[in-house]
């Protein structure tokens, strides 16, 4: 008797192989897995939304209506979002969207000035001469690369190079900072790129570790069968052409 866990392992293994078959070319197995995933993901989102609604609105309303009555307004605003399907009353959906956007904007306006600007600037104000040469070098690098990046992104009015004679001192300063900024960002992007690759490879490995290993034989057989089916499908498709 095959248990649900083993059946699940078969299905999981097959889905992984079907999805990876897209690397070779688009095919019917990939399309099936893709559509199944979209359906399940959409259903999962709806269920999570129902769960959230239940926890945040329905339960407080049913247990303590005197305090939580105002959630009815939010529920009505949420229901108004379905008016987007109406050609005549689509504008009613704007009320719900408006409140949501306003809360998001207010939360961002409250935290961004401190987190994204003030803290970043204070973290850059560092002692440039310290007894430890390594710390001194690190602080210089931090300050120069930050200033260079700011020069590149924000102070975008570049001092002009005179047609005749030597360029001015601000021109040279600007040019040096600009170049340091670009090179600093290349280091940052290199690190970001490497981390992205490592994350994706980590996911690739985790698929095997998490989903295939517990029922190794069932999973390997399922993966092999799925691979054979894909190859057969592609060969049949070619011979038909």
């Amino acid at each position: 008797m095959i248990s649900w866990e083993v059946l699940g392992a078969w299905l999981g293994a097959a889905l992984v192989v079907w999805i990876y078959s897209f690397v070779y070319r688009d095919n019917v197995f990939y399309k099936f897995a893709e559509h199944l995933f979209v359906g399940v993901a959409a259903g999962y989102s709806i269920s999570l939304a129902l769960d959230s609604l239940n926890r945040v609105a329905i339960k407080p309303l049913s247990t303590n209506p005197a305090v939580s009555w105002h959630y009815v307004i939010a529920i009505i605003l949420g229901l108004l979002m379905f008016m987007k399907y109406s050609k005549k009353y689509y504008w009613l959906a704007r009320y719900g969207v408006g409140v949501n956007i306003a809360v998001g904007t207010a939360l961002a306006l409250r935290t961004t000035p401190m987190a994204n600007i003030v803290r970043q600037i204070t973290a850059t104000i560092l002692p440039l001469w310290t007894p430890d040469p390594v710390t001194t070098l690190n602080n210089w690098l931090l300050v120069l690369i930050t200033l260079g990046g700011l020069t590149y992104f924000l102070f975008t009015i570049f001092p002009k190079k005179p047609e005749a004679g030597k360029p001015s001192l601000p021109y040279y300063v600007y040019r040096v900072l600009y170049t340091i900024g670009i090179y600093g960002m290349m280091v940052g992007f290199g690190a970001l790129f490497a981390n992205t690759i490592m994350t994706r490879v980590g996911f690739l490995i985790s698929i095997y570790l998490q989903y295939l290993q517990p029922n190794a034989w069932a999973s390997i057989t399922a993966a092999l069968l799925a691979a054979i089916a894909i190859i057969a499908g592609i060969v049949m498709g070619r011979s038909r052409k």
Partner: peptide, 24 residues
């Protein structure tokens, strides 16, 4: 990751912060 990477993303963070404030 600690020195050049932090410094490289600091101006980007500041720029994004200014963008969020302007949008707000």
């Amino acid at each position: 990751m600690t020195i050049p990477n932090t410094a490289a993303f600091r101006p980007i963070t500041i720029g994004a912060g200014l963008g969020v404030i302007i949008l707000g």
